[in-house]
Design a protein around this nucleic acid. Structure first.
Length: 660
DNA sequence: AGCGAGCCGTAC
DNA sequence: GACGTACGGCTCGCTG
C-alpha cells in the first residue's frame, strides 16, 4: 500500500559519523505519489522508532533531500546499515539536476540554489524561509548566551586574563576562543583545559534546543514530497530513468566510503602549522604609502600598492597580474610568498583541525547533485598535489598528512588514464563514424598495419606508429618552422599543451592570448594548430551545433540527458559528464566486488580516481584482487579503451608509487 | 552580528 | 554570449 518512504532528521550537528538525530520525521506515500500520512518522533521514543524501522524494511524506495546525510543519521541512531542494501534512493536534489532544464540551472556567475527551502520557493511557491529564519534567530540567541556563559565560567575559574582590557579587546578574544578556536588555540594555551571542561559541562546549543524545531522539521516532509511529486514523473518523460537508477545504486557505496573517512597524521599537521605560524610572524605586510598593516586578502588595496610601486595599471591583484610587475614591486614578491602560507594555514591546516574527529579522521559528503554535468563534488577534491618549500627550507606537503589507517596496511589509488581525452576520442568516433586519427593514435595503433610485431601508419608505411604526442603536434602545427630539436622546443610544446587543454575546455584565440601571454597572431596560430591536429574534434563541435537545433536534449555516453541549447558548454558537458557517469557506475561495481572482501574499503574518489584501503593479506591474493579491481574499473568503448593506472602506498598519500 | 557577493587559489 | 566543472577562506559592503 505504501510505495515510497520520505524521511528527514534533525540532528546535533553535521558530522556524518559522530552526530546523531534527536528528531525523526517521515511520510508515507502511495503509488499515486500522494502523501498518506506524516509522523515524527523523538530519539528516545522506542516504540515509534520500531514502527519506523518496520516501514524502512517494508518499503523499497526512499525519498529525501540530501538523503545520504539522513541515512548516516539513521545508522548513527543504531539502525542496521544492512537494511539499506538494495533499496532505491531518490534525492529531490538529484531530481532537480535531472529535470530542471540545464540552461536554467546554468546561471553563469551565479549558482543554482539546490537547497530544499530555495527549491520549494522557486518550484512550489512555498515560502518556508521564515520558519528557517526563526529557527536560526533563536539558535543564534542561545549561542550568544552560551558564549557569555563561557566567559563568566572563565572569570569564575580565574583563567580570564583580560578584565583590565577594553570591551572591544575582550570581545575579540572571546570571539577567537568561542567561534574560531581552531584558528587561535595556540594563543590561549592556558585556557584550553577550562574551555574543554566548560563545553563538557555546558554543551553548545543545537537545533534540539530551539522551540519551533518540530514544526520546522515536519514542514520539510511536505516540501520534499511536493518536489518529489512534481519531478519524479518527469524522470520518465525526460528519459532520465537510467541515470536516476545509476545514482541510486552509487548511493550506498558512497555512504560506506564517507563513513571510512581519511586518517590524519595530526602531529605532522601541528608541526607544519607551527612552522607556518613562525614564518608568518617573520614576514609581515605593510602598506608602503602609510605603513599600515595589510593582509593578503585585501585585494583592492594590494592592487593599489602594486600600481604605486610599479607605476603600471593592473587589471587584477591575482598571481598572473603580480607576475607582470614582480621585479618592480617588493610587496608583490612578498604577497606571492605570504598568500601561499596563508592559504595553506587557513584552508588546509586549520581546515583539517576544525574538522578532525577524536578518531583522528576527517569526514566529508560527496555531493550527488553538486554539479550540472553529473560529477560528484566534495571538499576532498582540492588538496594540493605539489609540496611547497618555505624560505626556511621547511617543506609543507599536504598529501603527506593523509596516512594509512590503523586497521589497514595499504592505500590503493586507481586513476583513470587520460579519461576525458579518451571520452572525447569516443565522441569523435560516434559523430563522425570513425575516431579522430591523431587522437586515437595517442592510445593505440589506429589505422596502422602490423608487420613483425610493429605497427606502421596505413597512409605511409614508412612511419612507425608511436603514441601521438598530442601537445607537440599542436605546437609543430602552430610553429612549422621550429624543429623539435630546437633548444627552446620544450617551451613551444608547453604552449601546445596549454592550448590543447584550453581549447578542449572551449577557449578561443583571445583567451589563449591572455592565458599564455602571447600576441593574438601566435594565439590564432596555436588554435589553428589545434584544429589542424584534431579535425575530428572540430567536427564534434559542429555536430553539437546542429543537434541543438533539432532536439531538445543530448544524452551523454551513459544516457544522462542535458536539456540545453548551449553548444559551447554542451561540448564539455558531454565529455565531463560521461566521465562522471562512468565513475558512478564503476563505484557500484567495485562495491559489489569487495562486498565479501572486508579487507578492502572504499576510501576516496575524485573525478577520475578511486581510492581504497586494504588490510594485510597474502601477496598472491593481493595481486589477484588488485588486478580484478583494475579490470572491473576498465571499460571498452567502441573507439578506445578506458583503463586505470594503479598506485599504492603503505605510508601516506604523498608517497604513493606505481603498482607493478 | 549575519549574510551574500566578489576575489583568489586549489583540484580534475 | 565563448577556458569546462567544482569548493573553501577572506574581505567588504549592506542590513537591522
Amino acid at each position: 500500500m505504501y510505495k515510497y518512504l520520505i524521511f528527514d532528521t534533525e540532528t546535533t550537528g553535521l558530522n556524518i559519523v559522530h552526530d546523531t538525530p534527536f528528531l525523526f520525521q517521515y511520510g508515507l506515500v502511495d503509488a499515486n505519489l500522494n502523501l498518506v500520512s506524516k509522523h515524527y518522533f523523538k530519539a528516545d521514543d522506542i516504540a515509534n522508532k520500531q514502527q519506523f524501522i518496520t516501514y524502512l524494511k517494508q518499503i523499497n524506495t526512499y525519498v529525501g533531500a540530501n538523503i545520504k546525510f539522513d541515512i548516516h543519521m539513521l545508522i548513527n541512531a543504531g539502525i542496521d546499515i544492512n537494511i539499506f542494501e538494495d533499496k532505491n534512493f531518490i534525492d529531490v536534489m538529484v531530481l532537480a539536476r535531472l529535470v530542471v532544464p540545464h540552461d536554467k540551472q546554468n546561471t553563469r556567475g551565479g549558482v543554482f540554489k539546490i537547497g530544499l527551502k530555495d527549491m520549494a520557493a522557486q518550484f512550489l511557491g512555498i515560502n518556508a524561509k521564515n520558519e528557517e529564519r526563526k529557527l536560526r534567530t533563536e539558535l543564534s540567541q542561545l549561542t550568544l548566551a552560551h558564549k557569555q556563559q563561557m566567559k563568566n565560567y572563565f572569570i569564575q575559574e580565574n583563567v580570564w586574563a583580560w578584565n583590565n582590557k577594553s570591551n572591544t579587546t575582550q570581545t575579540k578574544v572571546l570571539n577567537e576562543i568561542y567561534n574560531n578556536w581552531h584558528k587561535h588555540f595556540h594563543k590561549y594555551e592556558s585556557l584550553a583545559d577550562a574551555r574543554t571542561e566548560f563545553l563538557e559541562k555546558y554543551p553548545a546549543p543545537t537545533y534540539a534546543d530551539v522551540s519551533n524545531v518540530v514544526t520546522y522539521g515536519i514542514k520539510d516532509i511536505d516540501l520534499t514530497h511536493g518536489l518529489f511529486k512534481l519531478w519524479y514523473p518527469q524522470i520518465v518523460v525526460l528519459r532520465q530513468v537510467e541515470t536516476l537508477k545509476r545514482i541510486s545504486e552509487a548511493t550506498l557505496p558512497l555512504i560506506y566510503m564517507e563513513r571510512e573517512g581519511l586518517t590524519i597524521d595530526l602531529d605532522k599537521v601541528m608541526r607544519d602549522r607551527n612552522a607556518i605560524l613562525a614564518e608568518m610572524e617573520r614576514v609581515k605586510l605593510f602598506d608602503p604609502r602609510t605603513n599600515e598593516p595589510l593582509t593578503v586578502g585585501q585585494h583592492a588595496r594590494l592592487k593599489q600598492v602594486y600600481e604605486y610601486e610599479s607605476g603600471m595599471l593592473l587589471k587584477s591583484s591575482d598571481k598572473a597580474s603580480r607576475a607582470e610587475i614582480l621585479d618592480a614591486s617588493p610587496t608583490a614578491r612578498k604577497v606571492d610568498y605570504l598568500a601561499r602560507l596563508e592559504k595553506y594555514l587557513s584552508t588546509y591546516v586549520n581546515g583539517i583541525i576544525r574538522k578532525i574527529s577524536p578518531d583522528n579522521k576527517i569526514y566529508t559528503q560527496y555531493n550527488l547533485a553538486g554539479t550540472i554535468t553529473g560529477r560528484l563534488s566534495s571538499d576532498f577534491q582540492q588538496f594540493p598535489k605539489e609540496a611547497f618549500t618555505m624560505e626556511t627550507g621547511h617543506i609543507i606537503d599536504v598529501r603527506s598528512w593523509f596516512i594509512v589507517p590503523e586497521n589497514a596496511t595499504y592505500m590503493f589509488y586507481f586513476d583513470y588514464s587520460q579519461l576525458e581525452l579518451r571520452l572525447q576520442c569516443e565522441w569523435t568516433a560516434i559523430v563522425n563514424g570513425s575516431p579522430d586519427t591523431n587522437l586515437a593514435r595517442a592510445f593505440y595503433p589506429y589505422k596502422c598495419v602490423e608487420k613483425n610485431g610493429k605497427y606502421y601508419h596505413e597512409e605511409d608505411p614508412s612511419i612507425e606508429w608511436t603514441p601521438t604526442d598530442l601537445h607537440s603536434l599542436t605546437a609543430s602545427n602552430a610553429f612549422p618552422t621550429i624543429d623539435r630539436n630546437d633548444p627552446d622546443w620544450d617551451h613551444y610544446r608547453s604552449l601546445g599543451k596549454r592550448t590543447n587543454f584550453a581549447v578542449n575546455y572551449g577557449a578561443s584565440a583571445p583567451k589563449i592570448s591572455e592565458a599564455l601571454n602571447v600576441d593574438m597572431q601566435t594565439a590564432q596560430a596555436l588554435v589553428d594548430g589545434y584544429r589542424q591536429a584534431f579535425p575530428g574534434v572540430v567536427a564534434f563541435g559542429k555536430w553539437i551545433g546542429r543537434r541543438v537545433y533539432s532536439t531538445s536534449s543530448i544524452p551523454n555516453l551513459f544516457l544522462r540527458r542535458y536539456y540545453s541549447t548551449n553548444k559551447h558548454q554542451l561540448q564539455n558537458w558531454l565529455v565531463q559528464g560521461s566521465g562522471a557517469d562512468l565513475l558512478l557506475m564503476k563505484l557500484r561495481e567495485v562495491y559489489n566486488y569487495i562486498k565479501d572482501k572486508p579487507h578492502w574499503k572504499l576510501l576516496i574518489t575524485v573525478h577520475d580516481e578511486v581510492g581504497f584501503t586494504c588490510a594485510n593479506i597474502p601477496e598472491t591474493q593481493l595481486r589477484k584482487e588488485v588486478a580484478d579491481i583494475k579490470q572491473i574499473l576498465s571499460y571498452r568503448l567502441t573507439a578506445v579503451d578506458i583503463i586505470a593506472d594503479v598506485e599504492y602506498t603503505t605510508t601516506n598519500w604523498s608517497n604513493k608509487e606505481d603498482w607493478k
